[in-house]
Design a protein around this nucleic acid. Structure first.
Length: 851
RNA sequence: GCCCCUGUGGCGGAAUGGUAGACGCGCACGACUCAAAAUCGAGUUCUUAACCGGAGUGUCCGUUCGAGUCGGACCAGGGGCACCA
């Protein structure tokens, strides 16, 4: 037998950099993560929202992809065939901004970013099937998207209409909401206007009822996201009715105003009628009234978002027109044009009830209109005036003629009944959901495959001419969309009459690109968007993971797109994402220079005096709020140097520990040191096994409990709890004396950490002398009988306060437990000689003595 | 304006209505070392010199034998709102 090797020589440290790259190469060579669509194993599709190729991956990506990777590897170990792909959401505005700022072509910039980010992701050792990689800016991808767009066009789900955009009058360009800051253009600083353009829309409203009902089937979605989508779709029952106009008007053909209300019960509380600035009646009034024209112009200032419109000071213009109350022909209400009425919701006209709607209340205060109570907590409150705010909650209807005494619900039903009987209105459903405007007046996106011909109108590009390839010989020296001035690309013969025609120069919203990429991942034939049978073999996605910022738009559009494909018979799937998990954001502190620029943490250093200064200029720096890591705030932390220093496993491990995955995680470097220490602890257990014989029953139980709890935690995406379990197990193994149990526990531990720290697991597996690779290993099973102890600790309370604990054998009966508890000195001291009035026993848990 | 979420030690956070603070970070102490790093050991809600106690999960009220957990009101912080992805 050889001499015992000195302890010192055995304590080799695990070298993450070398080991990780070695195993990544092995996985690559063996194509360990290539998904086989033909496999007979149960199939599982694990997907994380694909990244926008901004240039570098950030900690949010690392967190997102690590979570998905744990699920993917865990399912593999459970014997599933797993599809876990990666690609690039590669169209969008940042590439055009880069083009303008750095004189680099958006395509060049994007492709360089993809190459850099692919390397970074590979360095993290994710179990991804890179053979299915795609980028939405490749014609091989967006050409199929154009074909799908035309399929929807043929099915009547695409149409064109005028719609408003944010317009920068100085830069002469369309602005995204993000580019409108305090109502001004982000580059020019000019006041933003709303302007109408002809744009393409998808008929998502046709699917409103389906999309709403479908939420009920999504049991594995967070309640929060379902609620957000429900509110977004915004189904409300109400009454639509017409106010006849009193004054005989010189207005062509307009005799009444259709309004929609969700509160017909307050109809006797009306004090005015308000219409949107874009309402046909408003335009008719303006034609004859220059003052009204000026007011409508003013309404066009400011942004197009709901928050902008509804928080603006409420203003109106009295048209001089009067509307007749439907329930009292002698009652006439003034008609205003108002800036807070949305043309896109309901009918673009409302009746104002200042007593019971806050917007109406503010408007009435400003224009000295009556504020009448028609809802109260009881009849006796009928004469109470409305106070400093409107009262919006339901109650008992008062001051309302035949509705008096009815509840809000009953009064609503009664008004609808009378309106329908008398024929002046109908109970209807209004939706907040509007059709999806997909036109973007930008270069870097999927060309909309339409040709405009003076004679034939909008003509679809024939299928055999797809893809309509985005021309790359463009420059960004002039403002506006370069496609508009690219005549060689733009001018084409009409496919229908062969006359002179021009291509549509708007491109598709990038949300279209992300509405079907998960289908293309599952199946990617060259000649069509996807093979139905192959796509259906993988879909729906079993577990989709991404940021909560996508809770509404992306997820709703993808659901719509999938249903639209189902509707036209291309795919037999109604809901694309069976399980959804929305992870929290990774946040970090921000720094702002004196002149208001965001600074990166590297730009900032601590000055001699202890204050923060800018490294380059030594000018003082303000510490900003802790915010989501984003390029614009320059508070991103590059994972690459962190991975280089601590290794991918430590970074992955830290991302999963501590914070619950749905909550925000504030990045700090301190925690990662603990993760790196953990990696070394596991390595020591595997690399320096203190072999032994015999069982260690306590450790056996600990191990089985850890297997059960870790699996359950991963299953429930509670990675922080899985991590805590594994810390406990490692500590227990370290403290245990050598035994066969200890050897088995160490070996099993390596399997349990494999989904989270896969490189370490491979290295440890090999060090333990186990055959094969851990990517081919099976998740350990546990014995349910091992999960329970024979000894339990019972809490003893007096009046609900803990006074003592007692150790007892499992299964002790109630009387015995009660007797043991009453025998306690501490309990007797609390009772002070009195006899208990009542004793509550929860077997094996607690005895509560009520004195 | 509308809708939604979150409040637990110095910090991140655990806790089927049943022993609050698992696990990690940090901290301080001890061992090893010439010293340090690494590692190991015992500790860490507050109050009390210590014990016995007492208080304690943003605030107040309620339901219950028992509330971090359920209900109500409030306070504070945060997020979303249709052209950012």
């Amino acid at each position: 037998m050889p001499d015992k090797v000195p302890e010192q020589a055995m304590t080799t440290r695990f070298d993450p950099a070398a080991a990780e790259c070695r195993w990544q190469a092995r996985w690559d060579e063996q194509k360990s993560f290539a998904a086989d669509s033909q496999s007979a194993k149960p199939k599982t599709y694990v997907l994380e929202m694909f990244p926008y190729p901004s240039g570098r991956i950030h900690m949010g990506h690392v967190r997102n992809y690590t979570m998905g990777d744990v699920i993917a590897r865990f399912r593999r170990m459970q014997g599933h065939e797993v599809l876990h792909p990666m690609g690039w959401d590669a169209f969008g505005m940042p590439a055009e901004n880069a083009a303008m700022e750095r004189k680099v072509h958006p395509g060049t910039w994007t492709r360089a970013n993809i190459a850099a980010m692919r390397d970074q992701l590979k360095r993290l050792g994710f179990a991804l099937d890179w053979s299915r990689e795609l980028a939405t800016c490749d014609p091989e991808y967006y050409g199929h998207e154009q074909a799908l767009f035309l399929d929807l066009f043929d099915a009547g789900l695409v149409y064109r209409k005028e719609s408003e955009v944010n317009w920068d009058p100085v830069d002469m360009t369309v602005l995204a909401n993000e580019q409108v800051i305090d109502g001004k253009g982000w580059r020019s600083g000019a006041a933003v206007e709303r302007r109408k353009l002809n744009q393409w829309f998808l008929k998502i409203t046709d699917f409103a009822e389906e999309l709403l009902a479908g939420l009920g089937t999504l049991d594995d979605w967070p309640d929060k996201v379902r609620l957000m989508q429900e509110n977004w779709i915004g189904k409300s029952r109400g009454l639509q009715f017409a106010f006849r106009l009193a004054s005989p008007l010189p207005l062509a053909g307009i005799e009444s105003i259709e309004v929609f209300t969700t509160r017909p019960d307050t109809i006797f509380g009306a004090s005015f009628v308000a219409i949107a600035a874009q309402h046909p009646l408003a335009l008719a009034v303006a034609a004859a009234d220059p003052q009204a024209q000026i007011f409508i112009e003013e309404c066009r200032a400011g942004g197009t978002s709901a928050a902008d419109i509804e928080t603006a000071v409420k203003t109106g213009y009295q048209t001089g027109i009067e509307a007749i109350h439907p329930l009292d022909p002698t009652w006439k209400l003034p008609v205003y044009i108002a800036n807070f009425v949305l043309m896109d919701y309901g009918t673009g006209a409302i009746f104002g009830v200042p007593g019971h709607d806050q917007r109406d209340y503010e408007f009435a205060k400003q224009y000295h209109l009556p504020i009448k109570r028609v809802v109260a907590s009881g009849r006796e409150d009928a004469s109470l005036p409305i106070g400093k705010e409107s009262e919006n909650s339901p109650g008992i209807t008062v001051n309302s003629n035949f509705l008096d005494g009815l509840t809000t619900e009953a009064a609503t039903a009664e008004v609808i009944r009378r309106a329908e009987t008398a024929g002046w209105g109908n109970g209807t459903t209004a939706w907040r959901l509007r059709d999806w405007g997909v036109s973007r007046q930008r270069y870097w996106g999927t060309p909309i495959p339409i040709i405009h011909c003076e004679n034939c109108g909008a003509v679809p590009v024939p299928r055999e001419q797809l893809p309509v390839v985005l021309p790359e010989d463009v420059t960004f020296e002039l403002p506006g969309n370069p496609l508009d001035r690219h005549d060689a690309w733009r001018k084409v013969p009409c496919p229908s009459c062969s006359g002179a025609a021009v291509r549509e120069t708007d491109t598709l919203d990038t949300f279209v690109d992300s509405s079907w990429y998960f289908i293309r991942f599952a199946s990617q034939p060259g000649d069509r968007p996807f093979d139905r049978a192959e796509a259906e073999a993988w879909l729906p996605v079993a577990q989709y993971i991404g940021g909560v910022e996508h809770a509404i738009l992306h997820l709703l559009y993808a659901r719509f797109w999938t249903r639209a494909l189902q509707h036209i018979g291309r795919l037999g799937i109604a809901e694309p994402f069976k399980g959804l998990f929305t992870q929290g954001m990774v946040t970090h502190e921000t720094f702002v220079s004196q002149d208001g620029r965001w600074l990166t943490p590297e730009d900032v250093e601590v000055a001699d005096g202890g204050g923060l200064v800018e490294r380059a200029t030594t000018a003082p720096v303000q510490r900003g709020r802790v915010e989501k890591m984003s390029k614009s705030r320059r508070n991103t932390v590059d994972p690459e140097p962190i991975v280089a220093k601590y290794g991918a496993d430590a970074v992955r491990w830290f991302m999963l520990s501590d914070s619950p995955p749905e909550r925000d995680l504030e990045w700090s470097e301190s925690g990662i040191e603990g993760a790196a220490r953990f990696v070394q602890r596991v390595w020591r257990l595997a690399n320096r096994p203190a072999s032994g014989d015999g069982r260690d029953p306590a450790l056996d139980r600990k191990l089985h409990r850890a297997i059960a709890a870790t699996g359950e935690a991963i299953e429930g995406l509670q990675f922080n709890k899985a991590v805590a379990q594994l810390y406990e197990l490692v500590t227990a193994i370290e403290k245990a004396a050598p035994s066969a149990s200890r050897d088995e526990a160490a070996r099993t531990l390596v399997l349990l950490i494999a989904p989270m720290a896969p490189h370490l697991a491979e290295e440890a597996w090999a060090a333990l002398g186990e055959p094969g690779m851990i990517v081919e290993a099976t998740w350990p099973s546990f014995d349910p009988a091992m999960l329970v102890d024979d000894q339990v600790t019972i809490a003893v309370q007096v009046n609900g306060k803990l006074r003592d604990t007692l150790d007892a054998p499992r299964g002790l009966d109630r009387a015995a437990a009660e007797a043991l508890a009453l025998a306690s000195d501490k309990v007797q001291r609390q009772l002070g000689g009195a006899s208990p009035r009542k004793v509550i026993v929860v077997p094996d848990r607690l005895v509560n003595i009520v004195a």
